[in-house]
Design a protein around this nucleic acid. Structure first.
Length: 209
DNA sequence: GCGCCGATTGGCT
DNA sequence: GCCAATCGGCGCC
């Protein structure tokens, strides 16, 4: 069995770097939440980087700050949580300096703590599917829009370093986007059973004939 | 295991 | 109105 070995808290400086660097280095790190008195979380095994105005897949693409994406412009390490598809929350961590809208999406977590609570929140799904997708991560951790905009170390989330992953780090295109899916900005631990099953290609397939 | 499809709310044009 | 950084169920091989 793999014992959880979370280390020291991740610093603001850790997040004050480019989103791809942070996304890669978050692999093997730990994320925990304390919600309703229950601590849950685990090891990050899949991430995606979103770059900002120049990134066609980003919420900040060619846009002035809006109410939703404002947090992307804020301080490194801040949590950016948004709601989509009428039912799912997505957990992101802001990267780079204030004014630069970039973030990293946490796409999959290997549960190590509070697994019983996560089972209850995820009601009926097999253990291997507790947090193997971005919507599942937020659901398993009990996150809501109330967690949007929390400064590093001040909200219900805690981020800690982990040992350097023994697994190979694999880089692919991002999942679920209509634009920018071809950029190599998705990072995952190769062969890990807990990564999402997301497709990397264009969302709308080319017409067949 | 893989692919298709409906669900369901809020953000944005 | 349109459609989204998704999920789970169902059908099929």
């Amino acid at each position: 069995m793999s014992d959880p070995r979370p280390g020291r808290r991740l610093s603001r400086a850790f997040f004050d770097r480019s989103a791809p660097e942070v996304a890669r280095d978050l692999l093997g790190a730990y994320v925990f939440s304390t919600v309703d008195g229950a601590r849950t979380g685990g090891r990050i095994v899949e991430t995606e980087a979103y770059l900002g105005r120049e990134d066609p897949g980003s919420h900040a693409h060619t846009r002035v700050p809006t109410e939703r994406n404002a947090v992307m412009y804020a301080a490194p390490g801040m949590t950016y949580v948004y709601f989509t598809y009428g039912q799912h929350h997505m957990l992101n961590l802001v990267t780079e300096a204030v004014g630069t809208p970039s973030a990293v999406l946490i796409r999959a977590v290997q549960p190590t703590e509070g697994i019983d609570v996560m089972r209850r929140r995820r009601h009926g799904v097999p253990d291997r599917s507790l947090a193997d997708g971005p919507g599942k991560v937020a659901a398993a951790l009990g996150l809501t829009l109330a967690d949007n905009g929390a400064a590093l170390g001040e909200g219900r989330l805690e981020l800690r370093a982990g040992p350097t992953p023994a697994e190979e780090i694999v880089v692919t295109g991002r999942v679920g986007l209509t634009e920018g899916h071809d950029l190599p900005l998705r990072f995952l631990l190769g062969g890990h059973p807990g990564v999402s099953r997301g497709r990397t290609g264009p969302k709308k397939p080319k017409p067949r004939r």
